[in-house]
Design a binder for these strands. Structure first.
Length: 716
RNA sequence: GGGCGACUAGCUCAGCGAUUAGAGCGUCCGCCUUACACGCGGAAGGCCUCAGGUUUGAAUCCUGAGUCGCCCACCA
């Protein structure tokens, strides 16, 4: 037998071992040995093709690979599906930023532009797939998927049509003039979830529209006031009660004729400002809701390119910021300002993706998924109800449990999902119209996979990227086809992902699966936290504190990185990673390696004829080992991966190495026991440190050895 | 405004009802003891944020306070 080197060298092991696994075919459940019967399935959260993998991905892969390897060893028919996400808006934004390409140069050459983004995406995709392999992920590559490949495009179209068979039907509708969050920088609408709020100091202006207007109002956005159609007060407010119902016509405000109705609405806070709010229905979501409640007129005064439009009178053509100054000047010179502007803290909306300004404005042909329309095929329940039922009923369990509350609270406040994006890279709508472009009030369109006839053009917009990821658990299994995979592996068993995408992704998968299949997409959701640096900061390029997982695996080995990631990492809690921690785990890997050397050196010579009698210590040692197996198994069953890892680390080093091996040297324990310990520990460690344990397994003289440790029986 | 989490060794964190409270990294002393210096032996270091309560027993459960952080809603 060859001598093991003194220190473990992951470089000469990992590539070789991964090939061995791939060659075995055991990543694919169809090729697993007979004993693997009961299916166990999971999808990998498809990484965005915006770049390469970071520590967060590495943690995801580590946890999921631990789960799948454990289940495989238990004897389940394990399927873990790999894939990547086209991430339409994120990828397009990133591409524009990195390439310097200007979209405006491609006005009529949409396909050319898409090809460029595609190239960019493909390059990243290849890198990602390589990285996944190098992290040791035992994914079934034969089922590799991409959210924008042919099969998934088919699934998306099918889903859309099921949700919206034709104009006026289903749960998708076009929001004619519904206010959207408009990302001025990216020139697209985005969903509520993609809007972030930044606290900043702003000026609150208090004024009247005109000298004879009875009520003064406060606002941080005076320029929008040319679009006001009402002033709302609280009906209980004694100061204003007598005005409710009155109408003031022909108010001259910055050269615009305003017509303002005084309305009473209980949502108005009497304490804030003057207790009266100027209602701007087309440039505020809250105002829009109030306007709908009271049947108010709506006037758009700001356009999509950050300028005032033709309804803004003398402000027309001005940039929004300029218009603001102009209005303030006008108010001053007309002595309408009640007092000097106050500095207040204000939450300013901005786009999570582009970092640019969000302007609320009406959009003519924006598609929405209604979350509150009763669905006949689902016992007239609404999506909202389906979403909350899935978790409330206990069909889906979220772990850690506290996230169930977070989820349910979110569902409670959920508004319709805005799914149209004015982005080019992504899924097209199976929706057609006859040009000129649909800007009319009554838009005519046809829902169809293919061109419905002469003169039709397809909708220019693309779908929110989460629309396709929402289908992931079943689109990867062949849906809408009635495939064997779908029957066997859906619902999936565990959905493991970061808590930061519980709404974006987890909720959307539940939504899609409930609507389209009438079943849950997974039984358990396991959420992990953010991976931070040693000082608990988020890793970011601008901070320069990014630790690249591949650098670390190259330096210390994949097993060391994986162990460091899971060590001391509680479920749902943010964790930290540092080079020092990884180094420590590299040392552990080396400890495992050298214990193996010791065992091999002591077994190779006279293994045939072991004369070791069971010693007094053997019995207690065996009990200890048995207890450990029980604990590790329990930890894994209850998703306490960190505890299992910590236990294993401690047991291996401070019990097995420090006590058992030392006792063996003194002749206090038998060789059989030593070997039993080693074999068992290697198996228990395998899900966590797959490479080194597999390498060791291949070298150990074990009876009835299998092709690889990966399919060995989990110790009992 | 609503909700959630954290506060444990110098640092980062496990532990969440019961024997002298743990790990990684760091610190100090001594060792190349033929598996391992990516190591071995030893040591220092903790009123487990504070105040009440429940309990035979609390870092662990309950109540309250303080500090920090996160999420959701968005306030004109």
């Amino acid at each position: 037998m060859e001598e093991l080197r003194k220190t473990y060298n992951p470089k000469e092991v990992e590539g070789k071992i991964y090939k061995l696994w791939e060659k075995s075919g055991f990543f694919n459940p169809d090729k697993l040995p007979k004993r693997h019967k009961k299916p166990f399935s999971m999808v990998l959260p498809p990484p965005n093709v915006t770049g390469t993998l970071h520590m967060g991905h590495a943690l995801t892969v580590t946890i999921e690979d631990i789960i799948i390897r454990y289940q495989r060893m238990l004897g389940r028919k394990t399927l873990w599906i790999p894939g990547t996400d086209h991430a339409s808006i994120a990828t397009e934004t990133k591409f524009l930023k990195e390439s310097g390409v200007r979209k405006s140069d491609y006005g009529e050459k949409r396909q050319e532009f898409i090809d460029l983004v595609n190239d960019f995406a493909l390059k990243n995709k290849d890198a990602i797939l390589k990285q996944l392999r190098s992290l040791g992920a035992s994914l079934d590559w034969s089922r590799l998927a991409f959210t924008l490949d042919k099969k998934r495009i088919n699934a998306v179209e099918e889903a859309f049509i099921k949700m919206h068979p034709k104009k006026g039907e289903g749960i998708i509708y076009i929001g004619l003039g519904k206010v959207v969050n408009w990302d001025v920088k990216n020139q697209t609408a985005v969903d509520d979830q993609e809007v972030e709020y930044e606290v900043c100091k702003d000026k609150l202006y208090t004024f009247r529209y005109s000298k004879d207007f009875p009520i003064s109002i406060s606002t941080t956005r005076p320029e929008t006031k040319v679009g006001d159609t009402a002033v709302a007060v609280n009906p209980r407010d004694k100061r204003y009660r007598q005005y409710i119902g009155k109408k003031y016509e022909n108010i001259k405000f910055v050269g615009v004729n305003l017509s303002i109705e005084i309305i009473g609405d209980p949502s108005i806070d009497m304490q804030f400002g003057t207790g009266a709010v100027g209602i701007t229905p087309y440039h505020s979501k809250v105002d829009e809701e109030i306007a709908d409640r009271h049947g108010l007129r709506k006037i758009q005064v700001i356009n999509g390119v950050d300028r005032m439009n033709h309804n803004a009178g003398i402000l027309e053509g001005l940039k929004v910021d300029e218009a603001k100054e102009r209005v303030v000047e006008w108010l001053r010179s007309n002595e309408l300002l009640e007092k000097e502007p106050e500095e207040i803290e204000h939450n300013k909306p901005k786009s999570q993706r582009s970092g640019g300004k969000i302007e609320y404005l009406p959009h003519r042909n924006q598609f929405f998924v209604s979350v509150s329309k009763p669905i006949p095929e689902r016992k007239t329940k609404t999506l909202k109800e389906l979403l909350s039922d899935a978790v409330k009923s206990g069909k889906i369990k979220i772990f850690p449990k506290r996230f169930e509350k977070v989820y349910l609270n979110w569902v409670k406040n959920l508004r319709d999902w805005s799914i149209s994006r004015q982005i080019w890279y992504g899924h097209r709508f199976p929706v057609w119209y006859v040009p000129p472009a649909p800007t009319g009030d009554d838009l005519d369109y046809i829902v169809s996979r293919t061109k419905p006839g002469q003169g039709y053009e397809q909708f220019k917009d693309t779908l929110d990227t989460w629309f396709s990821s929402g289908l992931w658990t079943f689109s990867t299994l062949g849906w809408p086809g009635k495939t064997k995979d779908l029957k066997k592996y859906h619902p999936t068993y565990v959905l493991e992902t970061g808590y930061d995408i519980i709404f974006f992704w987890v909720a959307r998968m539940i939504l899609m699966s409930q609507f389209l299949l009438g079943e849950i997409p997974f039984k358990t959701v396991y959420l992990h936290g953010l991976v931070r640096d040693e000082q608990r900061r988020k890793m970011s390029k601008s901070l320069g504190n990014v630790i690249d997982p591949l650098d670390m695996t190259a330096k210390y080995g994949t097993d060391a990185l994986r162990f460091a990631l899971i060590f001391n990492t509680a479920p749902g809690a943010d964790s930290t990673i540092s080079e020092e921690k990884i180094k420590g785990m590299r040392n552990f890997a080396n400890k495992v390696w050298n214990a193996t050397r010791f065992v091999l050196q002591n077994t190779k010579s006279k293994t045939q004829n072991p004369k070791y009698k069971t010693s007094s210590k053997d019995k207690t040692n065996l009990q200890k080992l048995k207890k450990l197996v029980k604990e590790i198994t329990r930890d894994l069953e209850s998703f306490r991966f960190h505890r299992a890892a910590e236990r294993l680390y401690h047991f291996f080093w401070h019990y097995y190495a420090d006590k058992v091996i030392e006792d063996y040297k003194k002749g206090l324990v038998s060789k059989a026991l030593l070997f039993k310990f080693h074999e068992t520990l290697i198996k228990l460690l395998h899900p966590f440190m797959p490479f080194i344990t597999e390498e060791i397994y291949q070298k150990l003289p074990i009876k009835n050895k299998k092709t690889c440790l990966m399919v060995e029986n989990w110790p009992k």
